[in-house]
């Protein structure tokens, strides 16, 4: 047997030679060199180009615009931030934050049964189907999803048709007649904006929630039931506190995505601005880059506070 012949040759083998061989030897001797070479391209791209752009934007928020010439004055000032506090601008911020909050709450309520079912009861093929059932809407085209709602909410669309067939059109009309939430039709009302926001961001709430619920040991629920708790009490006192990190993790997405969006309210909604639309308007036609930049700082700061609070609640373990 050829293998059994005793060891032969020297203790050190000749290298492969060539460029590959010597480079490989150099990397082995100096692992830092390899690390440096691996990290340079991504760091140049993300660290220099991307972070650089973000900082450039931040700096511009400390510039101001000359009201007569419309030119940007490149001098440090807090004047632009002062403008943010004008009532009309504050309105925009408050409206956006309220919308983001409502969207987050609604998403959590709708997401919970789906996430709970997928985490607890779905097994095997059902589990895979649930997973894909959330992933496909999550990944399918953002614009198409909005477009679908334009079809649904149009006066002559499917929702109007269903209510008409059920002779319930007065419900829609009554709702639209309400102040604040109402409007001429669903597709130009804050209600419409809200519905589309919830639809588009819902999958981002389901996935982290499901991940958190899957980590709740079943025997805890059984223990609670054994100790005489009703299903409702078990839900309130055991399940909800344990699932909360997942809810918070999901809410980071729904909250942040709503804060920054400018396309949904532009297509389905009223003429009242949201933060994203204000940014878009100020940098575009108005050419007021400093104010646009100051507006972008708002969601970042709000998210910063939100993340800090979420971190204290231990939400990041569920990401």
């Amino acid at each position: 047997m050829s293998v059994s012949s005793s060891a032969s040759g020297g203790a050190i083998l000749a290298g492969r030679g060539g460029l590959g061989g010597s480079l490989s030897d150099a990397f082995w001797r100096k692992p830092q060199l390899l690390l440096f070479l691996m990290l340079t391209p991504p760091l140049l791209w993300l660290g220099v180009i991307y972070l650089g752009s973000l900082f450039a934007l931040l700096i511009q928020s400390f510039f101001s615009i000359d009201e007569f010439s419309g030119m940007v004055v490149r001098e440090f000032t807090l004047k632009t931030y002062g403008e943010l506090l004008r009532p009309s601008n504050l309105d925009i911020i408050v409206r956006t934050v309220i919308m983001a909050g409502l969207v987050t709450i609604a998403s959590a309520v709708i997401a919970f049964p789906i996430a709970y079912f997928a985490a607890r009861y779905a097994r095997g093929r059902w589990k895979a189907m649930f997973y894909l059932g959330v992933m496909l809407p999550l990944w399918s085209s953002y614009l198409v999803k909005i477009y679908a709602w334009k079809l649904i909410l149009a006066k002559e669309g499917i929702l109007g048709w269903v209510f008409d067939k059920l002779h319930l059109t007065f419900l829609i009309d009554g709702w639209l007649a309400l102040p604040i939430v109402g409007g001429n039709s669903l597709s130009v009302s804050p209600t419409g904006t809200f519905l589309v926001f919830v639809y588009v961001w819902l999958p981002f709430m389901i996935l982290p929630m499901q991940a958190a619920l899957e980590r709740v040991p079943t025997n805890l629920l059984e223990a609670s039931a054994d100790l005489g708790a009703s299903p409702g009490q078990t839900f309130r006192n055991v399940l909800l506190p344990l699932a909360l990190p997942g809810v918070i993790a999901g809410s980071i997405f729904t909250f942040s995505l709503t804060l920054g969006d400018y396309i949904i309210p532009q297509i389905i909604g009223t003429s009242h601005l949201f933060i994203g639309m204000a940014v878009y308007a100020h940098q575009g036609t108005a050419g007021n880059i400093p104010l646009a930049a100051a507006f972008t700082v708002v969601p970042v700061v709000i998210m910063g506070i939100y993340l800090w609070l979420a971190k204290r609640a231990g939400a990041f373990n569920a990401l």
């Binding site: 180009i49 991307y50 650089g52 752009s53 973000l54 450039a56 934007l57 511009q60 942040s256 995505l257 804060l259 920054g260 969006d261 400018y262 994203g276 940014v279 878009y280 940098q283 880059i289 646009a292 930049a293 972008t296 969601p299 970042v300």
Partner: peptide, 12 residues
């Protein structure tokens, strides 16, 4: 939010 990435790249 995507709008921040977008506007910073544009102004850059």
């Amino acid at each position: 939010p995507g709008i921040i990435t977008g506007i910073s790249l544009r102004s850059a």
